[in-house]
């Protein structure tokens, strides 16, 4: 029995050691593409919902807190056509944050209601010291108003997502 216990202890210790090595992670965020359906122009304002897969934050070693922000540019078609960024809205519902592994005290959404994005970064999730050190999935939501006067064409916007450790 004693011998078996020693082997078991070694096995668990090895597992923990490998886990620590694989998890000597830096604070990082993995995003998934955000897509919108093609909008058939009708001469009226239209609202479309964006689709994305879960994003993932790995904050395993971020013991002193962190936050993530989002900013966006206008949708432009390269020929002078613009859908202003104020038409692009974003939110992250609290129930759309889930634990993958680590601290069960989840990070907190800072933006649970739709607000328009802008070129100024908006904090959308954060964790204080003592919480949010782990791996978490988050599923943000996007909504875009396509104004009636929009011309047909392909429009491009750039999202900038930043995850930071700081005061």
């Amino acid at each position: 029995m004693k011998k078996q216990s020693v082997w078991l202890a070694i096995f668990v210790a090895l597992g923990a050691a490998i886990l620590m090595v694989t998890h000597s992670a830096a604070l990082t965020i993995a995003t998934a593409p955000v897509t919108f359906p093609d909008v058939f122009l009708t001469g009226y304002d239209q609202s479309v919902l964006g689709t994305t897969s879960p994003w993932q934050v790995d904050s395993t070693d971020a013991l002193d807190g962190w936050n993530a922000t989002i900013s966006a540019t206008n949708f432009e078609n390269g020929y002078g056509g613009i859908i202003y960024v104020s038409n692009l809205e974003f939110r992250l519902l609290a129930e759309n944050i889930s634990l993958v592994s680590g601290n069960p005290l989840l990070p907190i959404s800072a933006q649970t209601e739709f607000i328009p994005l802008s070129e100024t970064a908006t904090k959308f999730i954060s964790a204080e010291s003592g919480s949010g050190d782990g791996i978490y999935n988050l599923l943000p939501e996007f909504r875009l108003r396509v104004p009636a006067e929009t011309y047909a064409g392909s429009y491009l916007s750039t999202l900038t997502i930043t995850i930071s450790a700081g005061p």
């Binding site: 830096a26 604070l27 990082t28 965020i29 995003t31 593409p33 955000v34 897509t35 919108f36 093609d38 909008v39 058939f40 122009l41 479309v48 964006g50 949708f75 859908i83 875009l144 396509v146 929009t150 011309y151 047909a152 064409g153 392909s154 429009y155 491009l156 916007s157 750039t158 999202l159 900038t160 997502i161 930043t162 995850i163 930071s164 450790a165 700081g166 005061p167």
Partner: peptide, 26 residues
């Protein structure tokens, strides 16, 4: 980058989003 579909319909708007990821330390 997300590929832009060159076969999009004439009276439609295609809305494409590219994402820049940053990590910062104060």
């Amino acid at each position: 980058m997300i590929n832009i579909d060159s076969n999009s319909v004439d009276d439609a708007s295609q809305l494409v989003v590219e994402t820049i990821r940053r990590v910062g330390v104060a």
